[in-house]
Simulated scan of single mutants.
Amino acid sequence: MTREIAKLVTREAARPADLEKITINLGPIDLGQIDLLVSEGFYANRSDLIRTAIRNQLQAHADVLRQTVARRSLVLGIHHYTRADLERAHSAGERLQIQVLGLASIADDVTPELARDTIESIVVLGALHASSAVKAALAGRIQ
Rank of each mutant, 00 (worst) to 15 (best):
A44D: 04
Q33D: 13
P16N: 12
A62W: 02
I24T: 10
T52S: 15
A107N: 02
Q97W: 00
T68C: 04
D30W: 05
L58I: 12
E40S: 06
V110K: 05
L49T: 02
I78R: 11
A115I: 01
Y81A: 13
S73I: 00
I50T: 04
L86N: 04
G41R: 08
E120I: 04
E94T: 12
V110Q: 04
T111K: 07
A89R: 09
L96F: 07
A62P: 00
A13Y: 02
Y43R: 07
V110N: 02
I24E: 02
R71S: 06
L103R: 13
I98M: 08
D85R: 06
Q57L: 10
V75R: 08
R55C: 01
D18S: 09
V75Y: 07
A14Q: 10
E120V: 00
Q97A: 13
Y81K: 09
R15K: 14
G102A: 05
R51W: 00
L86D: 00
A13G: 06
G27K: 11
P16M: 14
R55Q: 14
I119T: 07
A70E: 15
Q99E: 02
D85G: 05
R83N: 09
A104I: 08
P112G: 10
T111P: 04
I78T: 13
L58A: 15
H80D: 12
A70D: 14
V110E: 00
L37A: 14
I122G: 06
R66T: 15
Q59Y: 09
D85I: 10
Q59H: 12
L19P: 00
L36D: 09
I24V: 15
S121Y: 07
D30P: 14
D35F: 03
H90A: 12
L76N: 11
T52L: 07
A89F: 08
Y81V: 12
L26Q: 05
L101W: 11
F42A: 02
R55S: 10
I122S: 01
Q59T: 11
V38E: 07
I119K: 11
H79K: 15
E87Y: 01
L37I: 00
L26T: 05
A89N: 09
K21Y: 00
R95Q: 13
I24C: 11
R51F: 03
A107D: 14
D85W: 02
L36S: 09
E40F: 01
A70Y: 03
T23R: 15
E40D: 13
D35I: 12
R72T: 01
R72P: 05
A53Q: 09
L36N: 04
D109S: 03
E20F: 06
R15H: 00
D85C: 06
